[in-house]
Structures are given as structure tokens and as C-alpha cells.
Nucleic acid binder design. Sequence first.
DNA 1: TTATAAATTTAGACAGGTCTAAATTTATAA
DNA 2: TTATAAATTTAGACCTGTCTAAATTTATAA
Lengths: 218, 218
Amino acid sequence: MNSYTEENYLKAIYHLSINGNESVSTNSIAAVMNTKAASVTDMLKKLFEKKLINYARYQGVSLTDEGKTIAVSIVRKHRLWEFFLVEKLQFKWDEVHDVAEELEHITSAELVDRLDKFLGFPKYDPHGDPIPDVNGRFNTNELKPISELLVNGGGIIMGVREHMPQFLQYLEKMKLTIGNHIKVIEVVEYDQSVIIQLNTEDTFGISRDVAKNILVRI
Amino acid sequence: MNSYTEENYLKAIYHLSINGNESVSTNSIAAVMNTKAASVTDMLKKLFEKKLINYARYQGVSLTDEGKTIAVSIVRKHRLWEFFLVEKLQFKWDEVHDVAEELEHITSAELVDRLDKFLGFPKYDPHGDPIPDVNGRFNTNELKPISELLVNGGGIIMGVREHMPQFLQYLEKMKLTIGNHIKVIEVVEYDQSVIIQLNTEDTFGISRDVAKNILVRI
DNA sequence: TTATAAATTTAGACAGGTCTAAATTTATAA
DNA sequence: TTATAAATTTAGACCTGTCTAAATTTATAA
């Protein structure tokens, strides 16, 4: 078994290598883990002994297949629990991270798979991040809700997180349909609503709630 | 904050002092925690420093009010999670203990209270043990083991004193499950085994040992 | 290309929780 | 009441994950 701490290191390395970088530096891990570089080196040696990472002194690290499998399983748990917290316990989407950080370390695979089923095998967590399935596979085209785009950020609409007819009809009417490109012009401070522009030059505001439920590919 | 281990010690002391004993011995804690007496002594010193237990060398321990509050909150979490696992995720009642042992250490109070609400504020867990409410109060309505009933006495099965899977599976098989009514037909003189009858008219004998471990509300 | 800066690793220490072996205290039985 | 057994504690050690300070390697810029 791997300790709570080892799991967090693997997860950190996984997230750091997702954002491009082939090889992850000791310092970047230290920053994410909120610890010192020396401590990271100690742990890297341990993870290398366990064959969970590829590691050569001074050269940075990457996950082995086994390490990656573990990391993905933790990400799966984290995102499933976040989905549970928001959908079933009515947490706000910005309140769930810390709790999920604890829940992701619960070991029972049976629990995770039953939870997955209970939740209806969701594909995305409340932040729009894809949830790996039981085999660790997930949609890799990173979809983000419009609400997470920065000003001047844009993308192509790829999906929605809300399937109520009224909502879909609204999208239809506003031409916010799959395949269309949108760009964020402004995020209104006081209610977090978003001013967007279509490729038709049409510009208008949508509520934060709507922005959260439209997923775009960047 | 208290460590995972400290919480488990407090919980162990709580359970040991529930079963009568005012003061709990080092050895009994060691047995429950599956560790050595010397390790227990080390931890007792620590818990005493934190004012969570009353402790005098060689004299056994008891929980302070603060220690008891923590122990009860862990019991609350444990039983709520067990209820969740059985009611929502379709676990069998004899499969939930180990998973709940992990889940009980998740710290968020917000999570526990929302979970409680989501589950409909249940009063008993799947083993019939009472679930403390948000203020740590719970039904202490006296449950009696079947072994203490007189002939012709009866009651509704409300819980068990033994949580070994083999035992729980035996109960399952014999339909000796929570909510079922039983009546004592005879107490066999020579081995103190008990002949009981279910509301289904099924009549059979159970050993004194089994009778001691099934709790009924009269 | 070499001096200096930045990144990384090593050496040695510490705190938490555990252990074994030995010492001490309490309980028990003749 | 005293010898012996049982329970408990102490002493000293180990392992994990962390740290600081110093040493080493790699990167960079003149």
C-alpha cells in the first residue's frame, strides 16, 4: 500500500505533467506540495524504489505506467466525490475541493465503483474536468465551462452540463450551440455574469449559472 | 487537530467504557487497538497532555468531557457513513465496517451535517446502533441481549454486540435481522441455549453465545 | 568559456508512532 | 503477610516524512 503522502506526490506529478511538461522538476513539485525541495528529493527516491516514477538525479521525473495508474485512480476518486458533494449534498462547487482532497484517499475500490454507479457514471466533475472511468479512461479533450475562461479567452462549444429542456431551448435561441465559437469579453464583477461574443459578432451577457453549464474546448 | 491514530484511541476508550467499566485498562486498549501495551502507555501520556483523558500511572483511564465529545463525533460519523453505504450504495450490512473506519476520519463538520440531512437524519445505523445527532445526543433506550429475556419474553431486534462478518452472515441467514420480532420459547437448562420463534412462526435454537450478542428492544 | 546563479541533492537532525526488553507497581494466593 | 504473577511503565531503538545547512550539479550570461 502507498501512504497518503505518496499518493499526493503521485497526484502532484501527474497534474504537473498534464500541463505540457514531459519531465517534472523537483522545485515545481515542492511548490505544489507546499514543502521543501530536499523533502521532495527524499520522496522521489522512495517512489523510484517502488517503481512508480522514472528518476535520474538532477534530471526531473515522470510517472511510470504503474504510477500513472495510481495517480489517475486518485483523480477519479477526487472528481467523483466532488460530483457527489455538489449533486447530492448541495455543496457549492467552490466549497468541495478540500473535502475531496481527504475523500480521495479512501482505499476501497468497491466503494468508488458503487459511488460511480450511484451517481450515474458522470463524465465531468462540477468544474468541468473529465472523470476517469473504472479503467482510467476519460475524455482528454479538456472541456471547460465558460465560467472558467479568462477575459479574452475563447473556445468552441462542445457540450452542456445541464439537460433541462428549458435550458437547451434557451441555448438554441441564443445560437449557443455545439460547434460555435465564443469569446469572453468581460466578466461582470458583481454577479459574475459573462459578456460573450459569437463569431457572428453578436455580443451579449449570460448569467454565471448559464456560463457554468456550457462546456467549451479551448 | 488530532491525528488519525489519536482519534482511534479515543474511540477505543469510548467503546470500552460504554460496556460498563468506569476506568479502562492499558491492556484492554492494546487488545482493541491491536498493538502493544507499551505503545498504549506512550499514547495515553500524549492524550493526557492534551487533556482528552484522565490518567494516573497504573490506574487506568477515562475520557474527559472534551475527549468524549471527540469520540462521540467519530462514532456519529462512522454510523452515518455505514447508513449511507447500506442505504444508498447497496452494500451489505456486514461489508461496511472497514470502509466506515476510514470515512469516520474525514474532518469536515459541514460534510457530516449535510450527509445527515441527505440521509434523513437516521436514528440507527445498519447494525441497530444509535446514531448521535449533531449535538452528540442519541437514543440510549435500553436494549437487552436475548440471553436476558425470560421464557415467553420477546422483543424487536435492534442491534448486535458482535460485528464479525461470520456472525452477521449467520444472522442474515437465520433472518435474525434488524426490525424482526422474536419471542423466547424455552431456555435449555444444560447449555443455556435459547429456543426462539420469529413472527414467521419459524422456531429454532440459538446458542447462549449468539443470544448474548443479539440486542432487542422490549 | 568561465564565473555566477539557480536547482538539486546530501548529511544529519527531529517529531510521531511503534516496538522489545527490562524495570516497576499492583494484584493474588498460599 | 509475603512470594509470585500479572499489569503497566520506562528506556532505548527504529521508521517515515520532514527540516536546515552545506555540497554538488546544471543553467545562464557576459
